[in-house]
Nucleic acid binder design. Structure first.
Lengths: 311, 311
DNA sequence: GCTTTGGATCGGTTTTTTCTATGTAATGGG
DNA sequence: CCCATTACATAGAAAAAACCGATCCAAAGC
């Protein structure tokens, strides 16, 4: 494919600039025949005559050699730049950091966290996707993302999970729902009413499994594809729903009000945390974000301690 | 200096794009361990983890790997470009062609020749200097110029000279000079009048040597550094002068007229031609100009056969 | 004519690259 | 559950290359 090497180009450019094979060999700490050979190899592969040899007094570039020299130096600078870039990627907190987050809680606390991160490490360009659990796992595996904020749900063995915060499940009903104002309810009471279900691959199964462990079966009246839609449906009396992500507002988008109800049953809370590939050494940029997230209770500031920290 | 090679980068990028060491090895016609090794070497020198290895099902780039891949491909493209450039320099009539010409006759016929050349080979960017003989020789030796249009005067042995045209020396006087209208004169007659001398390193000696061979000694009344000045001085009655380059106009810049006088003596005419370094293989661009210059009597068209072709 | 200079060439050594063969871990079909 | 398959890693040997010291050679300068 390539008929010359960076090393040959380097030897050539130095010799060209010094107009001397010997001086170049000294400057580059290699023997004089090495430089000679490199130049001849380039001359051979390109078919160009790069130098006019003056016996006993060095050599001088031919016009062709001069033209090649300019472009060769440019290539060498760019190679140098690539190397610098690679080193900086592996040593500095810089480059691109590709994140992914579970969409239900992403907007709740990520904006604040990313703000703090961006202030602390301006050399990093952040990229944050939102995907459902299966796509998060797929994306991590394929190197699409380096770090994921997600729930500890169906995490495969090859993915490391570090819990950040625990979210207990709770019920949400419309303000004018018969159970509203109760403060807390039993799941057995809830199943008497129609349910609105978040219809996402893993979430679906998770919410239904909560009832299954108590051998209850909710009447799913509606399935919706977004959290906002669920809130709206619930607020408009289509039934109750179960959430883990805290309600940060008691209003649906149309202004109707919702009420949260604690569950009296002993339901396993969901653990939210940071996931990344087990085999992957994190970049300094990712490491920094991980430290930032672990170092401070990121959710507390926003949520006012509605959940319990860690698992 | 550089801790990776173009070959390693190439192996890496192909493997990265195919997400497979094996496929890359097939595509590049090398063994699979070679690819593996190259990737590991880059990982080692940069300190980056480029791939996540999935047992039995290929590998996928890490986010860092993806970033490096993009820039590595760019560098490879640029290397490819450099190679193309070099090959084109040695095979195509393209690139930069650095010329130099002796200033006295350069404006007489070079513009027309270069025009034809530029029309025929638009991929070549022409650069034409004008220097006196010593600087022409120096420039050729140092690779400053590839081809020179000059006189066969004091040409060192390491420079090849191909004659293009012969210019006999002739005298020039003002229109109102006593010798004007004679048509031809003897040098012995000329020395009775004051002379105006072109004061350039080699030209000076050449003109004086013409008199010396006949054991004559001209009275040099004025020395000037440019041909235009000489013409003006002669036209204004400061004396006669000797030229080789044909007078293409009988007017000086101030409008005063000049007359050319043939020499009756047997003076060796000056040979004008193409000079280039003996050790230098000409670029296709230079070769093309040489062919163009040799192929047609470049001067005839302009001068109307005032001199004799070739030597 | 002798010395100096500086690139080219020659052999031999070391290093790097590449290959074949094999190991190994995960996947998938029966 | 076993076994064949897949695909990367590793080991060891062979081939290629890069490199070096020594020497050669041509020109320049004293």
């Amino acid at each position: 494919m390539f008929h010359f090497t960076l090393k040959q180009l380097r030897y050539f450019t130095v010799a060209g600039e010094l107009s001397s094979v010997t001086l170049a060999s000294r400057k580059l700490h290699v023997s004089q025949p090495s430089i000679s050979a490199a130049i001849q190899q380039i001359e051979e592969t390109t078919g160009l005559q790069l130098f006019v040899r003056h016996h006993a007094q060095g050599l001088s570039l031919t016009p062709s050699g001069k033209q090649l020299l300019v472009r060769a130096k440019q290539l060498l600078r760019e190679a140098e730049g690539l190397e610098q870039f690679a080193v900086s990627l592996s040593e500095d907190i810089a480059g691109e950091l590709r994140l992914v987050a579970f969409p239900t809680f992403a907007p709740v606390f990520l904006p604040q966290l990313l703000r703090r991160y961006a202030d602390a490490y301006p050399a990093v360009s952040l990229l944050c996707h939102e995907e459902t659990q299966v796509d998060i796992v797929k994306g991590l595996n394929q190197g699409e993302f380096e770090l994921a904020f997600t729930y500890d749900l169906q995490i495969p063995v090859n993915i490391d999970f570090t819990p950040l915060h625990c979210f207990p499940a709770y019920a949400v009903v419309a303000e004018d729902h018969p159970l509203s104002g109760r403060g807390q309810v039993k799941l057995a009471e809830l199943v008497e009413y129609p349910m609105v279900l978040l219809d996402w691959p893993q979430s679906r199964e998770y919410f239904l499994s909560i009832f299954e462990t108590l051998e209850l079966k909710p009447q799913v009246a509606y399935r919706a594809k977004s959290l906002d839609m669920i809130r709206g449906l619930v607020a408009n009396g289509f039934g109750f729903s179960l959430f883990n992500t805290p309600l940060t507002t008691d209003k649906a988008f149309d202004g109707r009000r919702l009420t949260a109800l604690q569950l009296e049953d002993d339901v396993r809370p969901l653990s939210m945390g940071l996931a990344c590939l087990k085999g992957l050494r994190l970049s300094p940029a990712a490491e920094a974000l991980r430290d930032l997230a672990l170092g401070s209770d990121v959710t507390a500031a926003v949520l006012g301690h509605k959940g319990s920290k860690k698992r």
